[in-house]
């Protein structure tokens, strides 16, 4: 599903140039659950942003589902993104002014799904995440675990092929964290490819494969059994 070759990304300020990704190559197959680990500043987030087409690489190739996207402009990337990729963040990133239902509905609005179909699909996914009873609440009225479930609901409502999760349990206690990992595992078992950045060895154990990064390069791959 994903094949990147010799990917490079630099950050420049006036005095220093920092290499975030240094000729990085990797691939992820459809249906895989991959964890990316490494110390702070190793390039995990940069990689995830590029994979999620939120950022573009400076050099190298990124083939997504057989399409070379490294040189895509913002409009094309947005278009490809909205049909294929769902995001889950450490800080949930729900819109405070929208209710649970409206937050989850948002991606469907942008992909042009009809209003009736939207209600059906949002209710379906809220049900699955067991958050249906909170549908008219605002994010501030929910616990962290509930907020992350809403965020996951929003990530999957469009039935994306790929979910990118950036430390999804980072702001949660262990019990809520485990619930979230279970949810992701379920989604993976139903066929969704998942790439997750994490600091937690515990969480990484839910994945099939761990890619360890250091200074913008792959240093080790562990296949989980």
């Amino acid at each position: 599903m994903i094949k990147i070759t010799n990917l490079e990304k630099f950050y420049r300020t006036e005095e220093v140039e920092t290499i975030a990704l240094n000729k990085l190559s990797m691939h992820v197959d459809t249906g895989e659950f991959v964890a990316i680990m490494g110390p702070s500043g190793c390039g995990k987030s940069t990689l995830l942003n590029i994979l999620g087409m939120l950022d573009d690489p400076d050099e190298g190739s990124y083939v997504f589902n057989g399409i070379e996207v490294a040189q895509f402009n913002e409009r094309k990337r947005a278009d490809l993104r909205k049909h294929n990729i769902g995001f889950v963040f450490q800080s949930f990133n729900l819109i405070d002014e929208l209710t649970v239902f409206e937050n989850v509905e948002l991606p469907l609005i942008y992909t042009g799904v009809s209003a009736a179909e939207r209600v059906k699909r949002v209710e379906e996914v809220l049900d699955k995440m067991q958050i249906m009873h909170r549908r008219n609440h605002y994010p501030q009225q929910l616990s962290g675990g509930q907020q992350q479930r809403v965020a996951i609901a929003r990530a999957v409502v469009n039935k994306p092929k790929l979910i990118l999760a950036d430390e999804p349990t980072g702001n949660l206690d262990s019990s809520n964290g485990n619930d979230v990992m279970e949810l992701l595992t379920d989604l993976n078992e139903q066929g969704t490819t998942i790439i997750m950045v994490t600091h937690s060895e515990h969480d990484a154990r839910y994945s099939h494969r761990i890619i360890r990064l250091l200074d913008g390069q792959t240093v080790m791959e562990n296949i989980m059994v």
Binding site: L54, A78, F87
Partner: peptide, 16 residues
């Protein structure tokens, strides 16, 4: 800004 970010990852283009 956060809202804009969320909307963008949810599929909003610059135009929308």
């Amino acid at each position: 800004a956060k809202e804009v970010g969320v909307r963008k990852v949810s599929g909003a283009s610059r135009k929308t």
